[in-house]
Design a binder for these strands. Structure first.
Lengths: 352, 352
DNA sequence: TTGTACGCGTTATCAA
DNA sequence: TTGATAACGCGTACAA
């Protein structure tokens, strides 16, 4: 059996509380006893039992990270995944553990809270409905939303990438490189981040040319069913239409640059223009959101608005820990700046 | 304050143990008292305190998933990430929670075990050194390695994709499509999975043509430093050499198909062949490992050996739970079959 | 500086 | 079918 605080006490000839005090530095103990206690701890290979600690102290020292199976395979998911390293690292620095829990098929949030499994929650926007917000507010339970939520933007604490600013900067960059007819292509505008990217595009483009947004999905398109939530979702018709449209717009002089909301769109645009003999970046520029692993190898290498998920995860974890330590702290919203990774696809006529 | 088992007992007029029995169905209780107790639970919104439960029962009902920061941004990581959904889902079905912990900069494994934070561990091969194996064996602590480890292949329980078989099947597929000079291109052979893919290639190709393996990295190449562990690691020199080589091999009739160990290699091959006017799949076939999101959009769409991470994660979780319930069960190794996703890049002269 | 005594919320043993 | 009672391992007033 593993040694307990009592075994140490018995061995040294002190009371358990003295041992506890040495372990937690919670009261001054004479150097001499400390020395003996530490020695005994070494000898018996003592390690405090976290469960007993948590029970006595009333805190689990654990944070719950809710993931949403509906996001599996989507960009929101990869975005979320990449934040986990930074979240865990930051929590570890504050002596918290990270519990991962799926919110589907049944919501796990309530039981985590009721059963006191966690001291705080990090929640994706997809898992945050009105009912959940109300529940957490009533329980005075600390939580942070990882990504701007659809609801409760001012009532909740959240962290997100500044998509709007990133989008605007991409447009400004394209303009500086000499492009004047910048068109944005998005899949749809059903997510907050897609809308923010569109707003940013509109912000930036307004003095340059009339804004023009192309939607890949049919306007009456149904929400993407989760079981189809992978790349194959693209129908041949959508891809063909997109490619044809991109070529036609350039041909008719209505576009000389594209801001693509994701890498898949960007890839189709690249392929279409290349196939039509339109030279990139001399005759058309392309910028994408999200720096996928293959972006540097595209033909030509793709300029990308990059998301710094490690800053994002760190911010989320720190906000949450602050909320835990300082109860009833007013909700705060944090935006993390995106950065533009300049590659050949947006260099312009003169080259970079 | 949250209601406890005592509050329920007091309200109904029974002893706390009776309430516990109703909650856990651990002894027969009269319908009448059960009814009253359930009612009181509803009324007081009772939920068992998991910490107290764990302390009393001596189990944490939590599994630790170790992640390795050295893998961040590598394929091993994305492979790992995609398994998390299935791991969590499977654990949830068995009433276990999932704790994520980084093994860097300091090893977290020992403290997790000593402090009784978890009942079992899922560990990546990168975090499994000889010392760790010995420690876990001595503690009789249940663990599963997620991916074939470098050491202790027979002493440890592990799950992996059957890379060797998948590789062999890719070769057989290429052969059936009419290709006869199949060359494998890998980054290096420093990982177990890379070596297994090479073995599988050798297995399959042996009756068709002499095996020929190309290494992208210099033979004297230093191990990839973690801080550079992203796509940009490719030097221009490496990429150029690879592309030139691929074109030359086809030109000289020494290759008519390439089995690429990852998508980045495959992308360079596609680009080089396309640039040289070599038609795919008529004049050369290409197959890659790992079905990246962009693989279906490549030009032409890329045939890929696919890894079913949900089966992998499920198997890992189930093996671990079995090890926990049946102590000192002998180590087992499980291989999950890979599947070939046939796309245009390997269709051959006749088309598919 | 140290010890005593109790509580945290639950499960488990034993007896009734 | 139920109730005392004692763990589980630790933290912490309170007292000394």
């Amino acid at each position: 059996m593993a040694a307990t605080i009592k075994d140490i006490a018995k061995m040294v000839g002190v009371s358990p509380s003295t041992v506890s005090r040495v372990v937690n530095r919670t009261a001054p103990i004479s150097e001499e006893t400390q020395e003996k206690i530490r020695e005994a701890m070494k000898k018996l290979n003592y390690h405090p039992n976290s469960t007993a600690r948590n029970l006595a102290s009333g805190a689990s020292c654990t944070i719950g990270l809710v993931i949403d199976a509906a996001d599996e395979g989507t960009f929101a998911n990869s975005f979320f995944n990449r934040s986990v390293y930074a979240i865990e690292k930051t929590l570890q620095e504050h002596a918290y553990s990270l519990l991962i829990t799926n919110n589907r098929p049944v919501s796990s949030i309530r039981s985590l809270v009721y059963e006191k499994r966690v001291d705080g929650l990090i929640i994706p926007p997809a898992s945050l409905d009105e009912e959940t917000v109300k529940f957490l507010e009533e329980e005075h339970f600390p939580f942070v939303v990882l990504g701007e939520p659809e609801i409760g933007q001012t009532r909740t604490t959240w962290v997100d990438v500044d998509n709007r600013k990133g989008s605007r900067e991409a447009v400004v960059h394209l303009c500086r490189q000499g492009f004047r007819r910048i068109v944005m292509i998005v899949r749809n505008d059903r997510t907050v981040f897609a809308r923010n990217r569109i707003y940013g595009y509109q912000d930036g483009v307004t003095e340059i040319c009339p804004p023009q947004v192309i939607y890949v999905e049919e306007p009456d398109g149904q929400p993407r069913p989760p079981e189809q939530a992978d790349a194959e979702f693209w129908t041949d018709g959508q891809a063909a239409k997109l490619e044809e449209l991109a070529v036609r717009l350039v041909g008719e002089g209505k576009a000389d640059a594209f801001l693509c909301a994701d890498n898949e769109i960007a890839y189709h645009v690249l392929r279409a223009l290349r196939g039509a003999g339109i030279r990139i970046p001399e005759e058309a520029g392309v910028v994408t959101f999200d720096n996928y692993p293959l972006a540097p190898f595209m033909d030509p290498p793709l300029t990308a608005v990059d998301v710094d998920t490690s800053r994002l995860g760190k911010a989320a974890a720190e906000l949450l820990i602050q909320s835990i330590h300082e109860a009833d702290r007013p909700p705060r919203q944090v935006l993390i700046g995106a950065s533009l990774i300049r590659r050949m696809s947006s260099a312009g006529k003169e080259g970079q």
